[in-house]
Amino acid sequence: MTQITTDAAYITLINVFTVIPARQAELIELLDAATADVMRHCRGLFRPIFTARWMAPG
């Protein structure tokens, strides 16, 4: 499991996306394509991780 700490020798970038449920799959596909096409060429990037969190309705 990944741990984010304040004393690590690297930087953790967290992006938060808000998307309607009907477009969630589209967003995941876009993020996956961006990782495959762009991020894998960035020097030093070693572990892109996608997680998801859903909020309870209401």
Rank of each mutant, 00 (worst) to 15 (best):
M1D: 13
M1L: 13
M1Y: 06
M1A: 15
T2C: 13
T2R: 12
T2P: 15
Q3P: 06
Q3W: 05
Q3L: 10
I4F: 01
I4W: 00
T5A: 08
T5G: 09
T5V: 07
T6A: 15
T6P: 03
T6L: 03
D7F: 10
D7Q: 14
D7N: 13
D7A: 15
D7I: 08
D7H: 11
A8K: 01
A8N: 08
A9D: 07
Y10A: 01
Y10P: 00
I11A: 12
I11C: 10
T12C: 06
T12W: 02
T12S: 13
T12L: 06
T12F: 03
L13S: 15
L13P: 08
L13G: 11
I14P: 01
N15L: 05
N15W: 04
N15S: 11
V16Q: 13
V16D: 15
F17C: 14
F17L: 15
F17E: 10
F17V: 13
F17N: 10
T18Q: 07
T18A: 08
T18L: 06
T18S: 13
T18R: 05
V19A: 15
V19H: 09
V19N: 11
V19K: 07
I20T: 14
I20S: 12
P21R: 03
P21Y: 02
P21M: 06
A22P: 01
R23H: 14
R23Q: 14
A25P: 07
A25F: 04
A25V: 04
A25G: 12
A25S: 14
E26F: 12
E26G: 14
E26P: 14
L27I: 04
L27V: 08
I28L: 14
E29C: 09
L30P: 05
L30F: 07
L30K: 10
D32P: 02
D32S: 09
D32I: 04
A33F: 09
A34Y: 05
A34G: 12
A34F: 06
T35S: 08
T35E: 02
A36I: 00
A36L: 00
V38W: 02
V38R: 07
V38D: 08
V38I: 07
M39E: 04
M39P: 02
M39A: 07
M39I: 04
M39K: 05
M39G: 07
R40S: 05
R40H: 02
H41A: 11
H41W: 06
H41K: 11
H41P: 06
H41T: 09
H41Q: 10
C42A: 05
R43G: 03
G44I: 00
G44M: 00
L45W: 02
L45N: 04
F46W: 10
F46K: 14
F46R: 12
F46G: 14
F46M: 15
R47Y: 03
R47V: 04
R47P: 03
R47Q: 04
P48W: 00
P48F: 00
I49V: 08
F50E: 10
T51M: 08
T51R: 08
T51E: 05
T51D: 07
A52V: 15
A52E: 11
A52D: 11
R53F: 09
R53K: 13
W54P: 10
M55P: 10
M55E: 12
A56Q: 13
A56P: 10
P57E: 03
P57C: 06
P57K: 02
G58W: 00
G58Y: 00
G58D: 01
